[in-house]
Structure formats: C-alpha cells, structure tokens
C-alpha cells in the first residue's frame, strides 16, 4: 500500500520533470531558418558539401594533373575528365587537363573524389543554391577557361591547412 502511494508520487514527479524539459524547449529560441528572407545572412557550416570546385589561384592556375582518379572513383559517373596530349619544349609528351566536366544532377555528394585526389586539386564549397531552369545547366565545367596547371615549384597559396588534414586521412586509407 505504501509502495503504491510512493510510486504514484514518484511517477507524478517524473512526469513533471518531463514537462519541465518541454517547457524549456518551448521558450528556447527557435531553430527554424526562414530561408528566402534571411538569404545571404547565414551560411551553412564550413564542411557542408554543397558543390564541387577546383580552387584556382590568382594566376588562374589549378592543381589538377588530369590523372582521372576522381573519375574512376566516382560511383555514378558524375565526373568526366577530358585530357589533351601535348609536347613540351624538351620533347616530352605530357597529359594536361582540357575540361573537367561535373554533373551536379547525378552527384550524391559522397566526397570520394576529394578524398582520393592525390594533388588535393578539388574541394567542396558550402554553396547550396543549385536551382537552374534546365537540366543541361547542371553539367558544369570546373576548370576556368584559359587556366593551366600550377607548376610544382610555386607555393600553393590556396591550399588551406584543412586540406592537409584530408590528405593525412587519404594516406591512412591507402
């Protein structure tokens, strides 16, 4: 009998505790983003995988060698790397990047391409506004027109310390 009464009081206390927690949530600031109104005021977090890009430095140079490892690793053929064979001054044939085609429409944002890239030439930006009017506009060329590969000796200004972390991860996996 005493146990029965005790149980009732402890249960009521527990229910009140639960109600207290919901009341705290009730008066807490709300997390809803009112998107079109707050456009540009708030960015998604830094590591958000919004869109694949090839970072270019100020001389319009990128780090992509056109090796095509990202293309091979892409699970659904989102990336198409088109390369040219050129002959350098000292008579060597060399493969250079012609077009880096990226189909946003079939990308699942898995991030395998950035993980496997040996040059860390591609990375993600948090841009999430992808809406276009036709599907063909979703296929994008990532290397800027007229850009060329960055020479090895030149220090990479665009390389952030974050990417080194990613590189370490890749090494571990390999």
């Amino acid at each position: 009998m005493i146990k029965y009464i005790k149980e009732i009081f402890s249960d009521i206390w527990n229910l009140l505790l639960g109600m207290k927690i919901t009341m705290i949530n009730f008066i807490r600031p709300k997390v809803t983003e009112q998107y079109p109104e707050n456009r540009g005021k708030k960015q998604p977090f830094e590591r958000f995988r919004g869109e694949l890009v090839i970072p270019h430095n100020e001389n319009n140079e990128h780090k992509c060698t056109g090796c095509g490892i990202c293309m091979i690793n892409c699970p659904n053929h989102t990336i198409n790397v088109i390369t040219n064979q050129i002959t350098t001054e000292d008579g060597k044939t060399k493969k250079v990047l012609d077009k880096y085609m990226y189909d946003l429409g079939s990308c699942t944002f898995c991030g395998l391409c950035t993980q496997v890239c040996p040059q860390k030439a591609i990375s993600w930006t948090p841009n999430f506004e992808h809406a276009v009017f036709t599907r063909s506009k979703l296929v994008k060329q990532l290397n800027h027109p007229g850009s060329k590969m960055e020479e090895k000796k030149v220090a990479a200004p665009a390389a952030a310390p974050k990417k080194e972390g990613e590189g370490n991860e890749t090494n571990v996996q390999q």
Binding site: N25, F26, R28, K30, V31, T32
Partner: peptide, 10 residues
C-alpha cells in the same frame, strides 16, 4: 511547433 523548437506556419 514551439515545443519542437520550430516556428510553425509562417
């Protein structure tokens, strides 16, 4: 909505 930290219909 307020209990779930949302804004509800706006």
């Amino acid at each position: 909505a307020f209990f779930q930290c949302r804004l509800g219909p706006t």
